[in-house]
């Protein structure tokens, strides 16, 4: 696919994911140094163009860029470009004109990173990293999820340490609001590319209107799925889903699809619990489960920086396409 950019997991392919995970391994070490900084991207400018507010992801990308010695320009705007009377294309090309080598793009509407890549391609060579677009994709989240599963399983379980591919043959359950989740779309593609089997668990209203072409199994019975899974991946449920009548109430959602303490007892000894954050304790996951040893939620956040360093380094440092 597009190669030069990271717009979606499909741009990477299995080899591309493996390569980035290996690279991220080396950057974890950088983060532990007294001065956690390498000179790899000195002289490069990374723009974090966040058209939708997201402090966590923006800080993670900006930290990654700074640890690679890149200069960082930050653009945040919660208002739509139309409200300001300027087209999105004009906004992007204006920032580009100041000199930018990479655009990290977050937008509430699907497809904006690919539109931005198209506009930038008309005038120069800047690359685009999708930092989350609507309910489409969030490829660096999927990478850090794969990275976290790989490292945590190798560190914890002797059986995993010898496997060449840590996700091969794993059963991963993704639970909750799949419909509105860019994380779920990217995770399904990445987990599948690395050989895992994915089961989506959600009420019909929180599933995409069609699962045609999705490499997944489907269940509406969380308790039947939990004993069989190696990873239970919970998604955030937003309050809007109640007002929009996707589920009747938070209470009923937690009762049917929440990872409560009693449901957590159904999990096997080696099962990891994950969540892309921010966590709503007591809604999709009980506080004691989120804080239990099997939970790797804060590790996901920590790994995010190393994975994003790998992505930026790969797109800007070597000039080689990630998936090639």
């Amino acid at each position: 696919m597009s190669g030069r950019h990271l717009l979606g997991v499909a741009d990477l392919g299995t080899e591309g994911i493996d390569e980035l995970l290996r690279l991220a391994d080396t950057f974890v070490e950088v983060g532990r140094r007294p001065i956690p900084r390498v000179a790899a991207l000195r002289g490069k400018t990374v723009v974090s163009a966040f058209f939708e507010s997201s402090t966590r992801t923006r800080l993670s990308f900006e930290t990654a860029a700074k640890r690679l010695s890149a200069d960082v320009m930050t653009f945040t705007s919660s208002s739509s470009s139309l409200n300001k009377g300027e087209s999105l294309r004009d906004t992007v090309l204006t920032i580009e004109a100041m000199g930018a080598d990479a655009f990290v793009v977050r937008h509430s509407c699907a497809g904006v990173p690919s539109q931005v890549a198209g506009w930038l391609g008309e005038v120069g060579e800047a690359v685009v990293v999708n930092a989350g677009d609507g309910a489409h994709e969030h490829p660096t989240q999927a990478l850090l999820d794969c990275f976290t599963i790989t490292r945590e399983r190798r560190a914890r379980f002797a059986s995993a340490a010898t496997r060449p591919r840590a996700l091969e043959g794993l059963h991963i359950a993704i639970v909750g609001d799949i419909r509105h989740s860019r994380v779920a779309r990217s995770d399904v593609l990445a987990f599948n590319a690395l050989g895992a089997e994915v089961t989506l668990v959600a009420p019909p209203t929180l599933l995409p209107p069609s699962l045609e072409g999705w490499p997944v199994a489907l269940s509406h019975d969380l308790e039947a799925v939990l004993p069989k899974c190696d990873v239970a991946y919970l998604l955030r449920l937003q309050n809007e889903r109640m007002t929009e009548q996707f589920v009747p109430s938070l209470h009923e959602y937690t009762a049917t699809y929440g990872l409560t303490a009693s449901r957590a007892r159904l999990l096997g000894p080696e099962t990891l619990v994950m969540h892309p954050g921010p966590v709503r304790r007591g809604i999709e996951i009980a506080a004691e489960v989120a804080d239990s040893p099997r939970s790797v939620i804060t590790t996901q956040v920590a790994n995010g920086v190393a994975v994003r360093m790998a992505v930026l380094y790969h797109l800007l440092g070597s000039g080689a396409p990630v998936g090639a």
């Binding site: 058209f51 470009s81 087209s87 004009d90 509407c109 699907a110």
Partner: peptide, 11 residues
């Protein structure tokens, strides 16, 4: 006009 189309797909 172009400015009404050169925005996100949603907008």
């Amino acid at each position: 006009p172009p400015e009404a189309k050169q925005v996100s797909f949603c907008e």
